[in-house]
Structures are given as C-alpha cells and as structure tokens.
C-alpha cells in the first residue's frame, strides 16, 4: 500500500468519526442528509460482498466491516432522530440510483466466460457501488447549500471525504505508473466524484476557513 492510498483511507475513516462525534455530542442530526447516508450504506454493502469470498488483508477486512457497521449505525441514528429537521433533504435519489444501476448492468468488469454466476452478479454490484458512490454526496451538498446554520463539524466531515477522494486519485496515478494497476471504471467515476467536491471546497473555504479566528 502506498502513502496516498493510506492517507486517503485514514481521511475516510476520520470522516466517520467526525460524523459520529457530531451526532453523539450535539445530539442532533440537523444538516446531515439521511439520503446521502443511506446511499453510502448501500454502496458499502454492495461493494463489500467480496468479504464473503475474497480475503485481501486484515486491514481491508476490518475497514470494510467498520464502514458497513458505522454507516448502518449512522443511518439508524439519523433516521430515528426525534429532533430531526431535515425537511431540506429533498434530493430525488431515484435519479441517482436508477441510472447507476442501469449503467452498472452495461459497463462493468464481468467475465461471463470465466467465473460463476454469483461472481458476475458481484461484479455488477461492484460497478453499481462505484457509480453510486460518485454521486451519493449530492443530497448532502444540496442540503449544505440550503441550510444557513450548517455546523462546522458537518463541513469538516465533508472536507475529510473530499480529501479521501483526492488522495485516491493520487493513489491511482501512483499505482498505474509503478504497478500497472488500472481499473478504468473506478478511475473515471472517481474523477467525477472528486470534481463534485470541488464545488463543496469553494463553499468550505467561504463559510468555514474565512470565518476562523485569526
């Protein structure tokens, strides 16, 4: 594992702790999009089905289990929050889920000549998870643009997700150059996903960094 991948993963891990800290310590899920969190849970469950068939490393296994468990817990907390004022969580997620699923059926890494039926279904779900992750942040972005009182911790959560994506791009450049590792589906979707965060970082700069006491 190279340093870019590791920093990306740690930033991704930090994003979970930031969101959990916000939910637990402020006892409020205001400003957190349930839709985005439910999409992330879907992403992790679909992508990490390979937990059942392929062992890569203990690092990978534990991270995958943590991502599924933490996002399930976050979805539970946000969904059951009584002081939830998420009337602005209005993104039409079917416009994200259905195209991602259709695209995954046609553009994926299946090899029907090799492997069994179940492995190929896993490949379609893997591609679906990649496409869905690329756009899963959109409901959260829409909320951030609509809400005035967005807490800094939610913004830091988003920033750590953006850093995770940026470092994964660097990781792929590194791996392509030194290892010849190349998953075009993941890379193209990853570039789209990272570009979506560019919009967020402008907001982050204006609303958080410019407000920091000097």
């Amino acid at each position: 594992m190279n340093i870019f991948r590791f920093v990306g993963d740690m930033s991704h891990l930090a994003s979970f702790f930031l969101l959990l800290a916000k939910l637990i310590y402020t006892k409020s899920s205001t400003g957190v999009s349930l839709k985005t969190q439910a999409l992330y849970l879907t992403v992790f469950v679909c992508r990490y089905l390979d937990l059942l068939v392929a062992f890569v490393s203990w690092y990978n296994e534990l991270m995958k289990i943590f991502f599924i468990a933490a996002s399930a817990y976050i979805v539970y907390v946000v969904a059951t929050s009584t002081r939830n004022s998420n009337a602005s969580d209005t993104y039409r997620v079917e416009f994200l889920v259905i195209p991602a699923l259709v695209l995954a059926c046609f553009v994926n890494e299946t090899h029907w000549s090799k492997g069994g039926w179940s492995l190929n279904v896993m490949e379609i779900l893997w591609a679906f998870s990649i496409y869905l992750e690329a756009v899963a942040v959109l409901p959260q972005l829409k909320m951030l643009h609509q809400l005035e009182d967005t807490t800094n911790i939610t913004m830091h959560y988003m920033a750590s997700l953006g850093i995770y994506r940026a470092f994964y791009l660097l990781n792929w450049v590194y791996r392509l150059y030194y290892e010849g590792y190349w998953h075009p589906i993941a890379v193209v979707a990853g570039i789209v996903q990272t570009l979506l965060y560019a919009d967020f970082f402008i907001l982050y700069y204006q609303s958080v960094l410019l407000r920091l006491p000097s």
Partner: peptide, 10 residues
C-alpha cells in the same frame, strides 16, 4: 484467479 481478488481497494 477470480476477478474479485484483484480489487484490493476500499
């Protein structure tokens, strides 16, 4: 080897 084996990222 199975294709899933080559996916070692998160």
């Amino acid at each position: 080897s199975a294709k899933a084996d080559s996916k070692d990222e998160l």
